[in-house]
Amino acid sequence: MLKYLARRLSATLLVITLVSMSVFGIFAVLPMDPAALTCGKACSAPVIEANRHRLGLDVPVTVQYGRFVKGLFVGRDFGEGAAKFHCPAPAFGYSYNRHECVTTLVAEAFPVTLSLAVGAFVLWLSVGVSLGILAARKRNEWQDRAATAFVLVGTSLPTFISGLLILLFVALKFNLINPIEMGRWVSPLEDPVAWFRTFIFPWIVLALLYAATYTRFTRSNVIETSSEDYIRTARAKGLNERDILRKHTLRAALAPIVTLAGLDFAGLLGGAIITEGIFNLPGLGRLSIRAVLRDYDLPTILATTILAAVFVVVANLLVDILYAYIDPRVRVAS
């Protein structure tokens, strides 16, 4: 197990390195010149050159990458003289649009996205899995048909429609969200009620989509597992239906959901762009989309992209380790 862990961990590090390199490489070859973009109104060739030097873009891309990696570990200084800024480690870069270390921007945005992701995750997992089990148990009865209808609506309604509908016809109409305070970040440690009120509708919007997928997945897994030989064995032993479901069917049927849930959750941690946009939540999704569409803020895009990749890769690792605990066959094979 320890050997397996070490192998997986080094593979994970390798993937993260490769991802950061490719993202870095892509930005280097983009037909966009940050030096010109940050030039201002009175722009001239010397100013652009000076900017290029200031941004650290006048050296080969390999050297840039080296500085970037070094900055991650020991922090980094940007600019010179009076306009010098220090970003402590881990420094992802400096946003000249926002005049802030990227790490600070990310650190401010992350709790918002984390709150959104955790709440939605809990909601969709509990709703999706229990609805899926119910549908499988009451196959072809009205509960199953209702669940199928829910799946259909949930999977076919894009978040930008369901989000707007809920915002307009529920949250605003019944004064459940104060439009002026909408999306104001409150820490759950300071004011749990306000935090909950900020996030409940975004949670519902996000969870609707995922819960539908999980309902369908759980339903088909439970039905499939129910026809396994070992379920018949359990019944032949004399176990009651509740124990068969709880101990035998669900254990096997829900194991693949661990994988799915882990990866979906990690994907959300990278930022839910549309939901954050609709509900004005200052999370990673909003940070990225602003950096991409409005500011051409390369250091920020770089940071959020790498971060999103890291979440997915790390989640993959955790899910695999978790799976080895769930399924003894994996444990021995590894």
Binding site: D229, Y230, R232, T233, G238, A252, A255, I326, D327, R329
Partner: peptide, 21 residues
């Protein structure tokens, strides 16, 4: 309550008749 006590059954395929977990 008679299953497994008064009457028991074994099946054709022992590879799939035991719970793998």
């Amino acid at each position: 309550k008679l299953r497994g006590k008064a009457m028991s059954m074994i099946f054709q395929d022992p590879m799939s008749a035991l719970h793998p977990y």
